[in-house]
């Protein structure tokens, strides 16, 4: 086994904890808004009416996506290293690709919603 870089491991752990805190807030706001909005019946038009063109919602969902991008691949990396025999460098590459994919898809959605506001 190649010697793992201890410092990087500890920093990744910290990054995952901090992103978890951000996620906790984001998920609460996200779910809270859904529960609140759904009381009057929920339609696609209503969601777009609220989120589209709003800088605040765009910023919020961008932060949400970035937190997911940091959080999920680190967890995935731990699981793959523990449960599979894949070489560690391969796992790192896979998880990096997962991060790129999450960021790309998530930010694309946030941006599209923002642009629906006809800005």
């Amino acid at each position: 086994m190649s010697a793992p870089n201890i410092q990087t491991e500890a920093r990744l752990w910290l990054a995952q904890r901090v992103s978890a805190m951000v996620l906790a807030v984001c998920i609460a706001v996200h779910l809270g808004t859904i529960v609140y909005a759904v009381r009057g019946g929920l339609s696609a038009a209503e969601i777009i009416g609220r989120v589209a063109g709003s800088e605040a919602w765009f910023a919020f969902y961008s932060v949400f996506v970035i937190a997911v991008t940091v959080h999920a691949p680190i967890g995935l990396r731990a699981i793959l290293n523990e449960m599979t025999k894949l070489p560690k460098t391969r796992v790192d590459l896979l998880c990096f690709l997962a991060a790129v994919l999450l960021a790309y898809l998530g930010l694309k959605v946030a941006w599209r919603f923002y642009m629906l506001g006809g800005a």
């Binding site: 201890i6 410092q7 500890a10 920093r11 752990w13 910290l14 904890r17």
Partner: peptide
């Protein structure tokens, strides 16, 4: 230990 090592890693002490 996780907290202590995270703090040390931030300071660059685990190199």
């Amino acid at each position: 230990l996780k907290r202590a090592t995270a703090l040390a890693a931030l300071k660059g002490e685990l190199e």
